[in-house]
Design a protein around this nucleic acid. Structure first.
Lengths: 151, 151
DNA sequence: GTTTTATAGTTGTATATACAAATGTATACG
DNA sequence: CGTATACATTTGTATATACAACTATAAAAC
């Protein structure tokens, strides 16, 4: 579906408007697909991202600011995301003894297990979108997006 | 900023992961910029979209399903968006006399005024992203995104 | 004409986003 | 040492997203 069909537009659209809608809509499609994948596991996309960041710490605890700065949506509320993960026992959370302002968040074995379970499905998801693009086109798409952002 | 810098990634990333993060992040940048633009007007992005759809009706009322199907995020809750616009007197809302299941939503003059005020700013916003892209690149980016989605 | 089914919209609950204000702790300054 | 400032996180409030259950009305089936 092209973007005119998506929003049932009949009048011709300015190219700058079109490209923006195309990016927004493509993100929507990505998110919908990913949510579908996560649904059986009862974690949200953002919760999943936090778990992945924590796994990337390789045993070292992460505090709230570290998690925050590695997330895409910089204004997400890390406290509440970690709260939810704590309830599901996917992470632990303790006050840092050296600096009691900081919080040490660690992924649990249970958290690692669900990530491991998800890994192959996530890879399949990611690669499914590349089917119609050759290597050149992939590189180009990445470059164009970076150029676009860099207004 | 490229995507590795954004999420402070040190290890090399798979190209399929990279392209997805690039799209998600580009959408974030777009939304942040647009929210900034709308902030002085006290309407959210989704409320703005509803207003634009209503203006596009050129005087004809739109019911909830029409609004819904023209929005990008198909699962947005139109009822509540219209509620908010009603409070601000940007729209009116009446039961359709021919079919009492339907609701007729119309944009008010006040709504049209704020859109008119926003129009030039929105155009500036849209075009600001095209600065570094030539016509060919814009066409290509649109094509690549559609190809990408079409998994 | 009453029951069934489909359509249009609303409401409820949980999660996430956005942003500002508040809390608690550490560090710096006089 | 005590106060001011900076840092790390939490809490509050409003909006939006996601999805399911519910209500009301219209049309179809019998």
């Amino acid at each position: 579906m092209n973007i005119d069909e998506v929003i049932k537009s009949t009048i011709p659209m300015d190219i700058s408007k079109k490209i923006i809608l195309n990016i927004l809509y493509t993100q929507n499609v990505l998110s919908d697909n990913f949510n579908e994948l996560l649904k059986p596991y009862d974690v949200s996309t953002e919760q999943y991202n936090v778990l992945r960041i924590l796994r990337g710490q390789k045993g070292n605890p992460a505090n709230m600011s570290i998690i925050q700065e590695r997330m895409l949506a910089k204004t997400s509320n890390t406290t509440r995301l970690v709260d939810k993960l704590l309830l599901k026992k996917y992470v632990t959370r303790e006050v840092c003894p050296e600096n009691r302002r900081k919080i040490e968040v660690l992924i649990t074995q249970r958290g690692l297990d669900i990530l491991k379970d998800l890994d192959p499905k996530v890879i399949t998801y990611e690669q499914s979108f590349l089917q119609n693009l050759n290597t050149n086109e992939i590189i180009q798409l990445n470059q164009l997006l970076e150029k676009f952002r860099n207004k």
